[in-house]
Design a protein around this nucleic acid. Structure first.
Lengths: 256, 256
DNA sequence: GACATCAGTTATGGATCCAAAAATAGGTTT
DNA sequence: AAACCTATTTTTGGATCCATAACTGATGTC
């Protein structure tokens, strides 16, 4: 409840930088940034349901901050497509249809495909070639064990993320990586949102093996400079997260 | 100059809604929204050079608003890729390389191509088919006159925008139109930023005739349900704005 | 002369304040 | 009862305030 005219506390502004975990890369103590990620997580985790209206004060209290960073976060999340303005006033969590999910995946496909094509056309540096091949090598060794543990799968996820980042960030223009980053913020569209069903580890392993094989083919095409093939392979690779079709079993409620 | 502790005026908050031009669609009197468009325009027009640092107070004074809407605008424009954070403090206008421009165009190409493919696969409604064909019809009549006036070219620009909007907005998911909208905010990447060189109207007319022909072919493919062809045509169509190659003469400084 | 240090200045981020717009509730009229 | 108007509450957008972080320049040291 909003208590009129009540001050939150004797002010105590801006955290006194009690950073236990000093991030060597970038110390992002920005409250507004924290608010963005926290809110994003809340939405992903379903704390806020699609269609639900978000009130600034309420969210501010939940996150323990003032309204200012929340308002900034709302703007950012609107840009990202997680929130949406309704009529005159207020933001609601955007509803995501099955078609939206498919679209997000296809968008990632064409964008990463574009990145791969550009990369193949411009030629790989020796260093990049090395990194990509090491990526595939490591993934291969990991994935072809007789039985994968939960931890193995997570490690493969890291390798997967590295693989995609290598291609996207070396396509020669931030325009592409930006577009992909933005698209990845949409629910389910991200390449690292391959959900792991721990009840069917064998099936999951098979899926990852397919993905791994695709990585291998993409690198092959990239190294050979076969740009069209690289683009098509990368584009197809995007669909692996969807898990529809007979190969992996059709999940319920995914009538496309 | 920023005068410390001086109030801007006897407050006088929020415009008293003196709307001369009542927009029937949506009355967007939001100052922050105005700030975004104004700032975007300033950047496009070169009022702020690439690499130039933007100070909140200075921009606020230029636009005649307080810092709050400017800060919101900075966030939005950062998301759009027009601004960029530098190190710890401050936003600068993002530098755009020739490669970035090309990338923006290619991104639009793959996204609009994707939209066209989806449209062709799902089939056009009778109404949409009609609208597209009328669009092509009007464009044809306009563009095939013996000599185009400046005004004619502008009218064709409107038709062009309508054509692209029809395809993008009917692809079945806002995810696509959102991605394209965001990409269009990048300088030169927008489909309606086909620059008109008034000194060479004949040459311009020829370019628009090519674009018009491409529109025609796209609609043909869409109506016939030839999804791959529609995608490819739409993708190629994106390059028309670049004007490189012998057909339209190679502009200087466009070493790709 | 180059580099480190420290004080003064400026800019930014977060919090709060205030007025208007929107939503809500209650009462009145048709 | 439905529609309409009005009074009240809620919520938002913009402006301002304040403390800290980042920048600047001057001074001192090697």
């Amino acid at each position: 409840m909003y208590l009129k005219g009540l001050r939150k506390a004797p002010i105590e502004p801006r955290m006194p930088s009690t950073n236990d975990s000093l991030d060597p890369v970038f110390i992002m103590t920005q409250i507004s940034h924290t608010a963005i990620t926290a809110l994003r997580k809340h939405i992903r985790d379903g704390r806020y349901q699609p269609g639900e209206k978000l009130r600034e004060v309420q969210v501010a209290e939940l996150l323990g901050v003032s309204r200012t960073p929340v308002r900034l976060a709302f703007r950012t999340l609107e840009q990202e497509g997680l929130l949406e303005r309704t009529g005159k006033q207020g933001y609601v969590v955007r509803e995501v249809s099955a078609d939206d999910v498919l679209c997000g995946v296809e968008i990632r496909g064409v964008l990463e495909g574009l990145a791969a094509r550009r990369l193949a056309e411009r030629g790989l540096s020796a260093e990049l070639k090395d990194q990509l091949e090491r990526c595939v090598q490591e993934g291969d060794e990991l994935i072809n064990q007789p039985q994968l543990s939960q931890e193995d799968i997570e490690r493969w996820g890291d390798i997967n993320a590295r693989f995609h980042a290598l291609i996207v960030n070396n396509a020669g223009s931030r325009a592409i990586s930006d577009a992909i980053t933005r698209n990845n913020h949409l629910p389910f569209a991200s390449s690292d949102s391959i959900t792991i069903d721990t009840d069917h580890l064998a099936q999951e392993q098979r899926k990852l093996q397919v993905a791994q094989l695709q990585h291998q083919l993409v690198v092959q095409a990239l190294v050979m400079g076969e740009s069209t093939r690289a683009e098509m392979l990368m584009r197809e690779h995007a669909y692996i997260g969807l898990r529809y079709g007979p190969l992996f079993g059709v999940p319920e409620g995914m009538a496309l």
